[in-house]
Design a protein around this nucleic acid. Sequence first.
DNA 1: GTCTATAGGCTGATAGAC
DNA 2: GTCTATCAGCCTATAGAC
Lengths: 211, 211
Amino acid sequence: MGISERKERQRAELREHILQVARDMVTKEGFAALSMRKLADAVEYAPATLYLHFENRDAIARALVVRGFQELLARLEPAAAVDAPVERLSRLAQAYLSFGLGHPETYRLVFMEDPRLSEALFQDTHEGAGPKSFALLVRTFEDLQAAGQTLDATPPERLAEVFWAGLHGIISLKLTCSGFQGAPAEVLARTLVATLVRDEPKPSRPARRSR
Amino acid sequence: MGISERKERQRAELREHILQVARDMVTKEGFAALSMRKLADAVEYAPATLYLHFENRDAIARALVVRGFQELLARLEPAAAVDAPVERLSRLAQAYLSFGLGHPETYRLVFMEDPRLSEALFQDTHEGAGPKSFALLVRTFEDLQAAGQTLDATPPERLAEVFWAGLHGIISLKLTCSGFQGAPAEVLARTLVATLVRDEPKPSRPARRSR
DNA sequence: GTCTATAGGCTGATAGAC
DNA sequence: GTCTATCAGCCTATAGAC
């Protein structure tokens, strides 16, 4: 009795297809230019059909935000696997930057558009892509501190947040304030890393691992 | 023959009034909610009248952006007058932050909305509020370097840009990613300042001033 | 200078036929 | 499940009367 399964599969496939096309439209023209009518045209269905698969336009936006963030996380993970914490930090910065500058409209949608959209990303305190990504950063600063290679008096969570804000600031200024011609984003990111890394004298014994 | 002068004055006053009301609407509901019709209603003129004073909606947006930035500059200037460069940096950070968090919708409009809007701010290489504000930051890092209190090997322009990006990142994450509950903006800004300030060994003689 | 009236579009969403 | 047809509203901008 696989009929209902097939139906459900087809339904899921259509939903997926709609999201794919929506994603393409957003990356090309930005989220503001995504309308239900144009989307319906592009997937070759009637506008009303979209409402059978998504409650409304916002639901589509939310789904896109979640995927966007998952993609970002996927880029961060290889960088986070690097052993040496300083190198790891710099690889994380590069990965974050290349995502933001490489998918400007997705980045805008996820981080610069509507507070209500990004809210969902940080709700599940442990499972969501948001906390997961942030944990990668925190962990890196814990390791840096254990090695005496960053500010010792500051909680790693806070250093991670400043790092994140710095990267976000670099990207979003490039995306929005293009009139201001500063140094290339990569150069700024290198400087950001340099400001966060430094030798802090440690109690005589070799650097401990805090975990 | 002051008649034409009076007319021009009245014209300027109306233009001013329109901008004031537009500003209020933006601070209350955001720029997206500012429409020519609603604005016309609010100033008690017909929609068509607005077009006698502004070419179109974008022209109003541009005027608001310029004013917003001037207001920001006005807040930075007292902070920039502080003598001790470390204290000055921290005051600049506070001033920038209080502007951004105190006028979220204005900040959004100026720095997070449309690249074309902020473009104008950085065109006049020397006169505009954009370059003027940035110069305050650069100057501060020059003084810090002269005193051996920041990274010596990095051009002050780049440090200033990283500082700016850091503040912008802190504010814009608070404005858009409110779901992520991190440390308060003021705390993050203090950490940002701490990462940028450090003692760099200087050639034996007392700290020089580079100007 | 200011108005009325309107052109000419766009939008999200839904009722009801098939 | 998908369609057609449409509601009900928004928008920027302009022509032409006064």
